[in-house]
Structure formats: structure tokens, C-alpha cells
Design a protein around this nucleic acid. Sequence first.
DNA 1: AATGACGTTTCATTATTTGAAACGAAATAC
DNA 2: GTATTTCGTTTCAAATAATGAAACGTCATT
Lengths: 264, 264
Amino acid sequence: MSTQSPEAKGKPVPAGTSTLDLALQAVEYLVQQSRPASLAQIAEALSASKATIYRHLVTLQRHGLVRQEAETGRYEAGIKLMVLGEQLRQRFDIVSAAREELMTLRDRTGQAVTVCAAVDDELIVLELIQGRTLIEFSTRPGTRLAFHASAHGKIWLAFGSQQRTAAIADGPLEAWTPATIVSREKLLADLDAVRDRGWATAPDEVITGVNTVAAPVFDHRKVLVGSIAIVGATQFIPPVPDPEQIREVVSSAARISRGLTWKD
Amino acid sequence: MSTQSPEAKGKPVPAGTSTLDLALQAVEYLVQQSRPASLAQIAEALSASKATIYRHLVTLQRHGLVRQEAETGRYEAGIKLMVLGEQLRQRFDIVSAAREELMTLRDRTGQAVTVCAAVDDELIVLELIQGRTLIEFSTRPGTRLAFHASAHGKIWLAFGSQQRTAAIADGPLEAWTPATIVSREKLLADLDAVRDRGWATAPDEVITGVNTVAAPVFDHRKVLVGSIAIVGATQFIPPVPDPEQIREVVSSAARISRGLTWKD
DNA sequence: AATGACGTTTCATTATTTGAAACGAAATAC
DNA sequence: GTATTTCGTTTCAAATAATGAAACGTCATT
């Protein structure tokens, strides 16, 4: 529905499987609902017949992606999704290579530590080492961040693929807070600064009152494979961070990079 | 394949969608692979034609469940799975209701804190509050635990649905370590003890050298909705835990239960 | 006792998926 | 430097397999 215009203009619709598409829409629908949904409700939302949706739900249920309430017969998303997500997370080399170093960083700075990676046009949180306080609202593994409005994102724009940077800079820059950078020129200038000094901040840019100091992690080929950061209230990480905090983050990132050197 | 016998005996195969089934097998295959897989490889593994798998991968890719490497053209699982997993996790009331209390519990005991919930025949970790040390190998959100071989599991067997308890006790009890309870009688006796005292342990039963103290969380209807636990090396949480540790876990669970009373 | 809502099943229609084979590009071998 | 293999992708005709309307059985409500 939302992914394709109804073959207007004789657009060839380059392959794909409509049956599968409908079933995946059902999964996403169920994930977004906060309560179990009735079969009729799902069928109506996707404008398909009850019988069709029913058969798909049966198969999805066999795979654990969907579950049926025993009492009411309603359907909801299955926990297999959580399991698959965690399995996928563990595939990133950085999470296993960096963990000890990150614990050390947490203990030395007293702040929460996060790890991110970007794949294609998505920036995702892979790891969170909790600090003493609980900011972690948008910093849990599986959360997506904005490239232009986060310290992690700026690291990826500054040190990652140039075509991604160009695409983001050309696109619209949404304002998450009043402090979010929404001007293309300001963003590019900020990225130059990040490249120069080797670290990034985003005070108040993602959540007001929260700051982050991020640094890049490279593999043996000098390719950016991850970013690490400390996250804390501006009270603890000022807009112009303590040189000591910066040094800790940058040197931790460097040590992790070095650890990734002798691999493969 | 593994989910159904090949319609032996003329078993009617109660509905379902074979097209969708194949596509979901492809997703699971890709999640299990540690490296991106070639189209031909996937097709051969699922014994389907390249064209079929290709079309399914295109649709899966549109939904973000699968991603194609730009250089090699190979396919791998997409990070949307992580996002969906996290969205699903947040739907459990307990994770939002309990967080502050869990931080307190962590600080007072110095140990890592975990939260679990069971749905149907699966017991899953929902939340992890990290301690100082890093045991967290099998305690991350999205991890599945065994009912008979974990403190969390015993809470659910002792205070949850009786038919689940019966099913687990009747089934085979796999031994994760030499200390895992594999005898039906011993398990049932242990569960009686858990019910009496209101908390459970599982010293060395899931990982040798690690112990856990778990307690139940109930909602306003006295229905078990979650379990919380402290997890640590037996060095810190002895096989017979410190009464202080037990008191902390049990009272934390009670406070969370009370917090769930005025809801809905 | 009657009604409505629900998940589930049936069944004929036909739209959709399917595999074999051909295509073009890119990597590899000779 | 040319030949060969391998890869992802597209084409096309055959027919399998998905589809929706309607009927079914069950439960809760009226």
C-alpha cells in the first residue's frame, strides 16, 4: 500500500511477492498495536479478506512471529522477534570486541556508554553500558538515531561513506529539539570540525538536557565500523565537555580499533 | 520442513501459506548465518529455485527485514529485526513500571538485575540492569531461558499457570550444567519450596559459578506478570544466599507489584 | 431463547507463484 | 588478454497455490 503506487503509469513493479508483502504488513501492524488485535480488525486494516489473513497468521504463528491469546483468540506479535533481534545484534563484531573496554570507560567517566553502527541509511544503537543514572530512554539497543541530530550520527557522517553524508545533508533535517542542527551549512561546518578534532558532541540536540561525546572505531583497513560514546545529563557532560572526558572516549575508541586490527 | 511431517497419514495440514513459510525460512536462515549469503546458497539450503527466493528477498528487503550488500550483492538479515524486537519489548508493562526500583535494587545489592516474562512456552529476558562485573552472557534482553534450569523459570513454574508447570515437568529436562535439576521429583520438590518461601535460586544450574535470586511480580489481579532477579558470581551470591540479598529482591518485587495495583 | 461477533473451514475461481532457461555483468582462470 | 565460470536478475508459459464469499460452530451477550 504505502510502499508502491497502484501500478500507475504502467510502472513495472520490479519483481517481489504480493502474498509475502501482505503477511509482512500484518506483522508490522501487530508490532505497532499495543494490544492484541482481532482477526477482523487486521483484515480490515490491510483491506484483505479474513480467510487470507487467517492463513497467513497461522504460518506466522508456526514461526513464532505471531502469537494467539488463548482466551480471546486475538493475535499479537510473537517474542521470536526479540530473539531474532538479539541474535542479529550479536553478529556485529564490535559488541564482542569492545565490551570490556566499554565497562572501563563507564567506570572511569561515571557515565553511560553506547555503541552504534550504521548500515545503509540507518543508524542503530548496538550496546548500552548503563551508568548510575537512568537517561536510557532513547539509547537502548535496537533504537534508531538520526544522523544529523546525534553525536554518533555526526561521527558516521564525518568518517563514513561520503555518499551517505551527501544524501543526509541534501535531505530535510528534522528538528528534534530547538538545538538540533537543521541548516545544511551549519551541519557541514560541524562535520569539518568533528573530522579535525576526532570526536563529536550533540548537546541538547536529541533530548534537551542530555549531552553525548562520541568517537570513531575503525577496523584493520581504517574503515569505520562503529562509534562509541558517553551519554549523560549536561550537568555531567557540559556543552563543551571536560577535556578529561574527551580524552577517555577518544582513547577508548582508539584501543578498540587497535583490538580490531589483528582480525581476519 | 522441520515444523511438519510431510503430510504423512493424509494429515490435513490445517491451513497456512506455503509461500510465506518459505520466505520466513529464508529470514531465519539469514539470521543464523554469520556472514552474508549468496542467493544460490539460500536457494539450495531451502531447496527452492533461485528465482523464487530472489523475489521473496526483494519483498523482504522492501520491508527492511533483509539487506543486500552493495558490493557483493549478497544478502543478510536487516536491522529492522532489532527495531521490531525493541518495540515489542517495550510493550511489556513491567519494563516501564519497574525500572527505577530495579536501579535501586542494583545499587543496594551491587549485583546485576534481570527481568523476565513468560509467554506460552517461552521464558524471555526483558530487561538487564548491569552490575559492576560482566556476567551478562546469557542474560541480555531477548535471551531465552529454560524453565527448569533458572531461578526466573522456577518462579514461573511455582506461581504461574499449572498446565505449563505440568507440561514442563512431564517433558525432558535438559542438563545445562552438572548442577541442573533433571529429575522430575526433585524439580517439583524444589518448586514447593519456592512457593513456600516466595523466592528461588539456581546456583550453578544455568552457568557454573553463577547464582541468581528471583522473586515474583504480580498485577492487581494477583496474576504473575513478571519475575525479577539479581544475578552474580557465586562468590557474591552464595548457593545459600545472604538473607539480606533475599530480603532486597523480595521486597523490590513486592513494591513493583504494588505499583502495578493501581493500573487499568 | 435469540442474536451478534468471533475465529475457522470450505470451495470454486483465477490470479499468482513457480522453475527452467536465458541474460548481462563481473570475477576468475588459463 | 581471452575464455570460462559464477553471480544476481529477468523472462515466460504452466499450473500450483492463494484468494474471497459464504457457511460453520462456538461463545458471550441480549
